[in-house]
Amino acid sequence: MAIRNVLQLGDPGLRVVSEPVADPGAPEIAALLTDLQDTLTHWRTTTTYGRGIAAPQIGVPLRVIFLHLEQPWPLINPTIIAHSEEQMVVWDACLSFLCIFCQVWRYQQVDVRYQDLQGAWHTVHAEGDLAELLQHEIDHLDGILALDRMTDIRTMCTREEFEKRYRERSPYAR
């Protein structure tokens, strides 16, 4: 459909709490998911970054995220319903501020409930990199950015420094 502009750090649209999707099977939700997929594919091709994108990042305040790992994975109305007590520190960045990387706290494991395009509910148990990614994208739906979860401001670095020093040991190396 379309490659959409990704809102950048400072745009108030990134801080809006998203509304639930009433009808996951609606044609406008399918069109939104196509735009999210096209936009994410464009970013992955041009920057080599981008495992997921949330609708608020393209200015649509709906509870929709699109992941692309081994295959496309749309999640509608995702919610974290459980998480481990154990946390981990991971490097994080965002298509909305790809020039900045920082370390953030995330739960090691999460259970996420979401709907598919037919409206059926699913639950996924995620650990490690997938748990981190789901938390990052669901945070977008609540107007929360990775920078809000930073462990220490001294971990913040530019993309160039991250690539030189840390990328090889991160999920972004894949």
Rank of each mutant, 00 (worst) to 15 (best):
A2Q: 14
R4H: 10
L7V: 05
Q8G: 00
R15N: 01
R15P: 10
S18D: 01
P24S: 08
A26G: 11
A26P: 03
A26Q: 08
A31Q: 15
L32S: 06
L33Y: 00
T34N: 12
T34L: 11
L36T: 03
D38E: 15
T41H: 05
Y49N: 08
Y49Q: 08
G52K: 09
I58R: 05
G59H: 05
P61E: 03
P61V: 08
Q71D: 01
P72A: 08
I76T: 08
T79P: 01
A82K: 14
S84A: 13
E86H: 09
M88Q: 14
M88E: 12
V90A: 14
A93C: 10
L98H: 09
C99N: 13
C102F: 01
Q103S: 02
V104L: 00
V104T: 13
V104M: 09
W105Q: 13
Q108P: 03
D111S: 13
Y114L: 10
Q115P: 06
G119P: 12
A120I: 02
W121N: 08
T123H: 08
T123S: 11
D129C: 02
L130G: 05
L133A: 08
L133H: 04
D139S: 11
D139A: 05
G143I: 10
L145A: 08
L145P: 12
A146M: 13
L147W: 06
T151V: 15
I153D: 11
R154G: 06
M156G: 11
M156Q: 14
C157K: 05
E160A: 13
E160W: 06
F162K: 11
K164Y: 03
R167S: 03
E168C: 06
P171L: 15
Y172D: 00
A173L: 04
